[in-house]
Structure formats: structure tokens, C-alpha cells
Amino acid sequence: MNIFRLVGDLSHLLAILLLLWKIWKTRSCAGVSGKSQIMFGLVYITRYLDLFTNFISIYNTTMKAIFIAVAIATIYLIYFKFKATYDSNHDTFRMEFLIVPVGGLAFLVNHDFTALEILWTFSIYLESVAILPQLFMISKTGEAETITSHYLFALGSYRALYIVNWVYRYYFEGFFDLIAIVAGCVQTILYCDFFYLYVTKVMHGKKLSLPA
């Protein structure tokens, strides 16, 4: 474990708790893409199947359990409890356009052709594009609530920090996982224009609104 990965994980935890809190407090999931949340749920479930088989550390197990639980709770709030506030007219990104190619790629490009490894690879690839429906929804509505933009900033920062973690581990531990690195770079690149808007607008107290 290194500081980059720890701060990255905490940023990730902050992001998902922030979103859950926003929906619970405002009793509304307006501006939140349920499709992205479904895909994040799929990401955690397919990646953390080893939750009960191989124990890495208390931290690792606890975080995995929290991520899965918070993802499920968020999906429940969006599609059941506060379903009336779910903005399905703007959450129109076709998930199958992401899940099918990612599933195919996981079969073709992986470290080991075993079920667990292919599911892990699927999870890594899916995570890199899972935010697209959310970014697409913001581009359609033309704006995002400030709390939602903080969620996105924390979520985008987590994988950016993981890239620093991989550089660190490459030089100090001789560790590298090309699949995770490439997918992590794609994922972080997708946030770039949002990061720009966040830094230029939200940090100056303005609402995040896309140029119409």
C-alpha cells in the first residue's frame, strides 16, 4: 500500500458516499444516471467475487464490502425508493453499447483465460467506461448539481491517483498490470473535460453548466 493508492481509495469511498448522501438527503436522484450506477454495481460484483475466497487484509475486505453495499443501496434508492425523481428521459445512454464490447474484449484480452480472471478483466474494462452515461446525461441536461460535480471530481480523482500508484509500484515494487493501467488511463481521460469545467467553474463557486 502507498499513499497514492490510499488517498485514491479514500477519494473513491468519499465519492460513492457523497452520492448516496445526496440522494438520501435531497430525497431525489435528479441529475444522477441510474445506468452508470448499475454498471458500477456490476463492476464491484464482478471484481470482488474473491471477497470470500482469498483474504488480502482487513482493509481490502472491508472496502470491498462497503463498495458493494453502497452501490446496491444507491441503485435501490434510484430505482425503487426515489424512483419518481429518476430522470429517465435524460438517462438514455444505451448500456448494451458498452457492456457487450467490453464483455467481448475481456474474452480476447486478459491475463489468464479463467472465469475469475475474465470477470476481473471485464470489471476493469467496464469501470473505465461506466461513467459515460452520467457524463452523457450532464451533456444533455447542460448542467449538474454542485454536489453531483463533487461526486464526479472525487470519482475521477480516484483513478487518476491510481495511475500515480502504478507508476510508484512500477519503480519501487516492479509491479505493473498493463490491463489495469491502460483501462485506468482511458477512464481518467474521459474525465478530462469535466475536470476542466470543475476547476474553472465549480471551484469558483459557479454552477457546473456546459456551454449550450
Binding site: 481509495d9 474473491d50 470491498k64 491475463h111 516492479g174
Partner: peptide, 10 residues
């Protein structure tokens, strides 16, 4: 250099 096959990252 090689990649770890244990998945110790989240």
C-alpha cells in the same frame, strides 16, 4: 519486472 497475479488492489 512482472505483474503480480494476486489482486491486492481494489
Amino acid at each position: 519486472l512482472g505483474f503480480h497475479d494476486i489482486k491486492d488492489e481494489l
